[in-house]
Design a protein around this nucleic acid. Structure first.
Lengths: 123, 123
DNA sequence: TGGCTTGTAACATATTATGTTACAAGTTGG
DNA sequence: CCAACTTGTAACATAATATGTTACAAGCCA
């Protein structure tokens, strides 16, 4: 409660209710994406960019490993007239659908999320 | 190769390369969604609506069971000022992002997919 | 009625997500 | 320099989930 190290992996893990390693793993993803700064040996994590410069899409991409939302049957039957061509047909639509989703995420920054949190906390 | 029952679960399963039960399970989802007509004892499946009246969103919703694309931490810490309010903040954006994705899916019908398949098969 | 089908439950297995332990590597304040 | 902290990461264990399989009841039709 002293506000000194309220963002160590151990502290956050306790608050969230998970293991500290889980926090460190996520933090690592965010670091590799250039969103937060952490360093071996120095406690805590801080932002690499100001909140208005971090969109939800940035976070989504940093955390998500799959990269594409839709998965397609890996080995279609080439003998089948459908299987032979369905992939290319679907990839286009699926790509645009994912792009639509991601575009919406890119329109909201972490600054707005934090502002909403503050507004909710004071009323 | 006689074209007689090219849409029994057994036939489709063989072509796709999965177990027939998998096909029947998917078919059941499509039937419950009102997209195809199947009946115990009678071989094959046929469309419940014409292809132009079936969108990719229809299929997506029929097959997908989760319903929401994004999942949120189930039991946030009420002692934490972030955890207490982050859900409602994110739900809005996540809902709109999913809606954007689904809207794109709703803009393409199965008729268009089939037409693309036919175009690919003839060239 | 016999031989086919679909629908579904129950079970087995494979894959993935998640949690945990352990420890090397780094920093900091005394 | 050293002791006590931290983070980063690998290795392992476990839980959860997806997937595949078997079995069989129920239904249709020649």
């Amino acid at each position: 409660m002293n506000g000194q190290d309220e963002n160590t992996s151990e502290w956050m893990a306790g608050s969230i209710g998970v293991n500290a390693v889980v926090v460190r793993n996520v933090t690592g993803l965010l670091r590799r994406a250039g969103l937060v700064l952490t360093q071996q040996g120095v406690p805590g994590a801080r932002l690499a960019r100001p909140l208005p410069d971090i969109t939800l899409l940035d976070v989504y991409r940093a955390v998500e490993d799959s990269l594409d939302l839709f998965t397609i049957h890996p080995r279609p039957n080439p003998e089948c007239s459908v299987g032979a061509n369905i992939q290319v047909s679907l990839e286009g639509v699926f790509g645009e659908a994912q792009q639509a989703m991601e575009h919406r995420l890119s329109q909201t920054t972490m600054a707005e999320i934090v502002r909403q949190l503050q507004a909710a906390a004071t009323c």
